[in-house]
């Protein structure tokens, strides 16, 4: 069971209060009619699906009913951080790899 910190409610809540809504930071093409079918498919269906650090959207369905982003490890299931919509993650696969390199 995940405990996830809602950046709007500013509280730790249980996983069941939330719904998962997929990969974060995917921008809808500004002019869908102008792009190729492949580019539209890439936006619509293709995902990075990493084993490791993943930036994803969650919806606080039984709470404030707002969307926010989370940085979570898909292998260890550790939630590294949550942040509001429109913000960028402070923890990424690169920063973690770098921190690990500095420590050793």
């Amino acid at each position: 069971m995940h405990h996830i910190y809602c950046p709007y409610c500013e509280e730790m809540r249980e996983e069941e209060e939330y719904s998962y809504t997929g990969e974060a930071h995917i921008e809808r093409p500004k002019d869908p009619a102008a792009i190729s079918d492949e580019a539209w498919a890439d936006y619509m269906f293709f995902r990075s699906n990493p084993r490791g650090i993943h930036h994803e959207m969650w919806y606080h369905a039984a709470g404030c009913r707002r969307y926010f982003n989370a940085t979570r490890d898909t292998q260890s299931y550790k939630v590294h951080e949550t942040y509001k919509m429109g913000e960028m993650p402070s923890i990424t696969a690169e920063t973690l790899a770098q921190a690990k390199g500095d420590a050793s």
Partner: peptide
């Protein structure tokens, strides 16, 4: 389940979530 990881080795993405 690891197909996305395999695809990433050659810079491809798949319409798959594990």
């Amino acid at each position: 389940g690891n197909s996305g990881v395999m695809a990433a080795m050659v810079g491809l993405r798949l319409p798959i979530e594990s």
